[in-house]
């Protein structure tokens, strides 16, 4: 494992921890999109179908369990916790799941490396992860006033994506036959979705101001 991959996984982990910290300690999920969180739970559930059958490393198994556990617990908190769920911006978070899930499923059935159930589900999870942040970005755009933790959560997710691209470049030059078009293209699309957010995040950081998104 190279340094970019490790740093990418760590920022991904940090993003989830920041979100759990916000929800668990402040008992608020204001500004967090439940739609995006539900999509991530679906992403991990479909991607890690091989968790008990394909052993890669202890690191991989533990991280998979953490991502599965954290994504489902965030969804549980936002839906059912008696205090947290009251802070959820339900009226603003109106993005429709099937609008993203259906095209990704069709695409996974058409474009995959191997037409088996597990491979199609794995491919579907990659396509869905690429666009799962959209409800969150729409919600940020609508609420505009973003608290620090929500801003940091999205920033860390974007950093994770950027580091994964560096990881692929590194692997391409150091590992023979490391060519994975599906992973790369969906990963690139996902990273590009953060570009706009990153621009405003950088501006607010540079000017030492609270993050505001334009209407």
């Amino acid at each position: 494992m190279n340094i970019f991959r490790l740093a990418g996984d760590m920022t991904h982990l940090a993003s989830v921890l920041v979100l759990l910290l916000k929800i668990h300690t402040i008992k608020s999920c204001a500004g967090v999109s439940l739609k995006t969180q539900e999509l991530y739970a679906l992403v991990f559930a479909c991607r890690y179908l091989d968790i008990f059958t394909n052993f890669v490393s202890l690191y991989n198994t533990v991280m998979k369990l953490i991502f599965l556990g954290s994504s489902f617990s965030i969804v549980w908190y936002m839906r059912y916790h008696k205090v947290v769920r009251r802070s959820y911006d339900k009226d603003q978070d109106t993005f429709r799941h099937y609008f993203l899930v259906l095209p990704c499923l069709v695409l996974a059935l058409l474009i995959n490396e191997k037409f088996t159930f597990k491979e199609v589900m794995w491919t579907f999870s990659l396509y869905l992860e690429a666009v799962a942040i959209l409800p969150q970005l729409v919600l940020l755009q609508r609420t505009r006033n973003i608290d620090n933790l929500t801003g940091q959560y999205v920033f860390l997710l974007g950093a994770y994506r950027g580091l994964y691209i560096l990881n692929w470049i590194y692997r391409y030059f150091t590992e023979p036959h490391f060519v994975h078009w599906i992973t790369w293209i969906s990963g690139l699309v996902q990273t590009l979705l953060y570009a706009d957010f990153f621009y405003y995040y950088y501006q607010s950081w540079k000017n030492n101001q609270k993050l505001h998104l334009p209407a």
Binding site: N60, M63, F67, K114
Partner: peptide, 10 residues
Amino acid sequence: SNDRVVHDEL
């Protein structure tokens, strides 16, 4: 490689 079935990334 094309016969990769083990996905080693998260």
